[in-house]
């Protein structure tokens, strides 16, 4: 069983958890993910990137944002609880090599999956520029961890409440012009990855994106995670999750992400009620 060893709330909506998973910790590489199911009988299987792993301790770290039912339920779990099922490591590892200057762009929760990649890029001897962005100050995560890796770091917020008031594409464009990057890695909401790819395209800077399509099995069996890349259908869970951003049909992908919206919204509403009740209960115990 995959016991929760540590839990920290990074921002109002973002949680970091260290989970016991020795077999996954042993094999995982940057860029790979797990599928977690809290409850075997009725739980949903959701993919989350392995943000970090400690093979000696036999643990992996996940960082997730509470966006709907399952992530809210996970956030209500505590140290000592377990997630009944964790499958992984899944997907192709990031291809890491020394190419020169690499611009790593992380948007919102995308900073979490970006972290191990940036780390590996640095270790491979690249000059690593990190751009991280979020809607506001509250939602900036892992700034210190990223600072420790980056040769250059830019933080921006949409509303200017912290760092530079800009979308991540602004500094990205500047670096494309000034620093002749060999490559960019962009991870975040689909719309951000789409515009990052559009930003680098005129400069011919190869841009890797990590796609977050809807998954069920994560093993190539259902095809629910399919996307169109360069006119061909690919399965994100086995062919990806990383692809050449210049070839991905983001518009189709974004539409597909909304396939189950109605039901998700109903559930989400209920989650917030549950979260409130849980908070009150905690308050009452104090």
């Amino acid at each position: 069983m995959n016991k929760i060893l540590e839990k920290r709330q990074l921002s109002e909506e973002v949680f970091r958890m260290k989970i016991e998973a020795p077999l996954i910790a042993r094999e995982r590489k940057p860029g790979q993910f797990v599928i977690i199911q809290k409850d075997t009988n009725y739980g949903e299987r959701i993919p989350l990137t392995i943000a970090d792993a400690d093979p000696d301790e036999g643990s992996i770290t996940i960082i997730f944002q509470t966006v709907g039912k399952t992530t809210h339920e996970m956030a209500l779990s505590n140290v000592g609880d377990s997630f009944e099922n964790v499958l992984g490591p899944l997907g192709q590892p990031t291809h890491i090599e020394k190419v020169g200057t690499v611009v790593c762009v992380g948007g919102g929760i995308g900073v979490a999956p970006l972290h191990p990649i940036a780390q590996a890029m640095k270790a491979a001897g690249n000059h690593v520029i990190i751009i991280m962005g979020a809607r506001n100050r509250e939602l900036i995560i892992m700034e210190n961890e990223m600072k420790a890796i980056a040769d250059e770091l830019v933080v921006c917020t949409d509303d200017g409440s912290y760092g530079r008031k800009a979308l991540v594409t602004e500094p990205l464009k500047e670096y494309c012009e000034s620093s002749n990057p060999a490559m960019a890695v962009a991870i975040g909401p689909p719309i951000m990855m789409k515009f990052c790819a559009e930003t680098t395209r005129p400069y011919g800077v190869k841009t890797i994106v990590s796609l977050n399509t809807i998954m069920v099995d994560g093993t190539g069996m259902c095809g629910g995670c399919r996307v169109t890349v360069g006119g061909e259908t690919k399965f994100v869970c086995v062919d990806g999750p990383e692809f050449d951003g210049h070839l991905v049909d983001f518009d189709n992908m974004m539409l597909r992400l909304g396939a189950f919206k109605e039901r998700e919204q109903e559930d989400h509403h209920q989650c917030h009620l549950d979260m409130e009740i849980a908070k009150k209960k905690r308050g009452a115990l104090r």
Binding site: L23, I24, E27, N85, V86, L87, G88, P89, L90, T219
Partner: peptide, 8 residues
């Protein structure tokens, strides 16, 4: 939860 080829 053990995918041969990936978990081992």
């Amino acid at each position: 939860n053990f995918l041969v080829g990936r978990t081992r």
